Amino acid sequence: MDIRVLEFTSPVFERFFNLGDDIQSLAVSRLLPKVDGYVCREALNHVDTECVVPMNGFFMNTDNWPPSAKVYPVFFAFHVRPESQKHIFTPAGIDYLKKWAPIGCRDQGTLALMQAHGIDAYYSKCVTLTLPRRETTPENGQVFLAGLSDTAKHALPRSLRKEAIVVDQAKIRLPITDSKLKLMLAEELLKQYRDRARLVVTSKIHCAMPCIAMGIPVVFLYDKNKQDDYRVKIINDLVGINYVYEHGPAARIRNHALSNRIDWSPAPLNIEEMKDDIRQKFAVAFQRVTSVG
């Protein structure tokens, strides 16, 4: 049976696209025996050819749920955003998830949602944490700021801000619908982090987790008003979350005052044992679905 990976090509992505999505597809591709093609995450209910599809990532921007009967889903690193709960957890949606359980959840919040609906589930973490650790550290490494607002940047020491390379990987405003090209862009971005970064400061989980996996020191900044956002709680289990002010007339001044409380020289994590555990659990989930097919 064909194995297809999620792509992000529907009208939802016409104004901008998020390379974090494509990074997740790159990461899961490394765990598969082959990739025969792609299916749009927002149109899984229209798939008309039998195929195995890893369901890793953020679900979803439309109400096209549950998927077609032609889809054999591998639920691993699955995340349900708050706005989509009403689409995912319909009676038909719950029956679908129960049929393919246990559901591997990317975060504890999604796990709690599954359990609240009587669906067998477990905490799988994210497949981007399985990316290979870099072999060498750049001699004259640079600081990368990824996805930070101008207000959040005021939490950084001026010396770091002055020398930093600024990246916005979550809102790429290019008229690109070619999935292979987007995957190439995602791969190049990861290469830049791997080969050049001595520190990455970010508010994006799919910058933070790949960089952590690659052995790059990471500082994670996030909006203080979103402390209940279960999507990012996985980062707290890894490098911690530094909450900053994003709103209000004094936000920049308050962030500047926070600077001394943040460790700007963190050591890289070694998560090789975690990687092995995630890979093994993914292999079990994949085998369970392919044996049905």
Rank of each mutant, 00 (worst) to 15 (best):
M1L: 12
D2S: 14
I3D: 12
I3Q: 12
R4L: 09
V5K: 02
E7M: 14
P11S: 08
V12T: 09
R15Y: 12
N18G: 04
G20V: 03
L26D: 00
A27L: 03
A27E: 06
V28H: 07
V35M: 09
D36R: 09
D36L: 01
V39F: 13
C40A: 15
R41M: 07
L44T: 08
L44N: 10
H46L: 15
V47G: 06
C51S: 15
V52S: 04
V52H: 00
P54I: 09
M55R: 08
M55H: 13
N56Q: 08
N56E: 10
G57F: 07
F58I: 10
T62H: 10
D63L: 01
N64H: 15
W65T: 04
P66Y: 13
P66T: 07
A69C: 08
V71A: 13
F75Y: 11
F76I: 00
A77G: 15
H79K: 11
E83W: 14
H87R: 11
H87S: 13
P91Q: 14
G93D: 05
D95A: 15
K98D: 05
K98P: 01
K99R: 15
I103Y: 13
Q108A: 12
L111M: 10
A112K: 07
L113N: 08
M114D: 08
Q115Y: 06
G118W: 12
D120M: 08
A121P: 09
C126N: 02
V127N: 04
R133V: 13
R133P: 03
R133G: 03
T137N: 09
E139N: 09
V143I: 12
L145A: 00
G147Q: 03
G147F: 06
L156I: 01
L156W: 07
D168C: 09
Q169V: 00
K171A: 10
R173L: 07
L174V: 06
P175H: 02
I176P: 04
T177W: 06
D178H: 11
L181Y: 08
L181C: 01
K182M: 08
A186D: 07
E188W: 11
L189S: 04
L189M: 14
R194E: 08
D195G: 02
L199H: 05
L199P: 07
V200S: 05
V200Y: 04
T202P: 01
S203K: 07
K204T: 03
M209W: 06
C211H: 04
C211I: 06
I212A: 01
P217Y: 03
V218R: 12
V219Y: 10
L221V: 04
D223P: 09
K226V: 00
Q227A: 07
Y230H: 11
R231K: 15
K233S: 14
I234A: 08
N236R: 01
N236T: 02
L238I: 09
N242Q: 04
V244E: 11
H247C: 03
A250M: 09
A251S: 09
A251V: 02
R252D: 10
I253A: 11
R254M: 15
H256K: 13
S259N: 02
S259P: 02
N260H: 14
R261W: 02
I262D: 12
W264L: 06
P266A: 00
P268Q: 02
P268N: 04
L269A: 02
E273W: 03
E273L: 11
E273I: 03
K275R: 10
D276F: 01
D277I: 00
K281C: 03
K281F: 06
F282P: 14
F286D: 09
S291R: 15
G293S: 10
